[in-house]
Amino acid sequence: MDTSVNNLALADRYLEIGKPERALQTLDDAGGIVLHSALYWRLRTRAYLQMERYPEAKDELMGGLANSPEDVVLMYLLSICEWKLGDLAAAERAILGALRQFPNEPSLLSRYALLVSRAGQIEKARRLINRAAEIDPHDTDVLRVRVALSQAQGDHKEVERLTRRLLAEDPEEAFGHRALGDLSLEQGKMGKAARHYRTAAAFDPSDASTLQAARVSAFYTHPLLWPVRPFTHFGPAKVWLAAIVLIYGLRALGLDLVAGVLAIIYLLLAVYSWVVPPLLRRWLRRRNP
């Protein structure tokens, strides 16, 4: 076997374990007939996509498509690349090119659904993803997109149902736990959200946004911040308004003493909410560098 063919296998491995630079080095050492194979160009493109170097990824794709204009994987990668470069129309053309060859491929339909949802065509996205779900209801790609669409439509019940199904397929799916965290947060269940975010972060500690969500939610569920929960849950403006209405209401009822005590407690609470969170944040940062 040509060493270059081994290089392709090696590069594929490096991409799988998240080492795109090594993959590119290995591909640079390849030569001969493999340079004319679609696989070679797919691997180069994937390497640049992993490094988030989208213009270079597109250059590689053009090279690959010049050699293999009908390669469906290259078209799929082109749609991702164009999307990342902000050209949704070109991304749509690429994914449609792939779909012409494989009209019933769930991952292509999912990608297309995601694309049209980004363009604001939620109903069309919904139709596409339903078609994909009919073909393969257990496909995790399809389930992920269905969850994302339900989130976009604010359908909490559906988000929960689909996420549970996704986690039934793969209990270690970080996206599912993240979605449940988002849902809990929207429902005002900070403690539950923190637990879901933490689980998501444990399964994928490489996702910066999940880590951030886990850290922030963990911070707000710290026991020292329990007294300021109303502020974080309802927002400071609503809490202030409610306190003022309550205090004046009590005074109007002639309960001046109770209103006075409540006003003092509330003012202390307000001061606490200004002072303690920054101090706690600093202390936690020092403890977990």
């Binding site: 972060a201 500690p205 880590l211 560098p289």
Partner: peptide, 28 residues
């Protein structure tokens, strides 16, 4: 990267040594 794993995926204390290093004067 190690800091993230120590914080979120240190089940069974498998990265305790890394955690101790991150808190050491050397790292600070």
């Amino acid at each position: 990267s190690a800091r993230n794993y120590v914080e979120f995926a240190n089940q069974g204390g498998r990265y305790d040594e890394v955690s101790a290093f991150l808190k050491s004067r050397e790292a600070k």
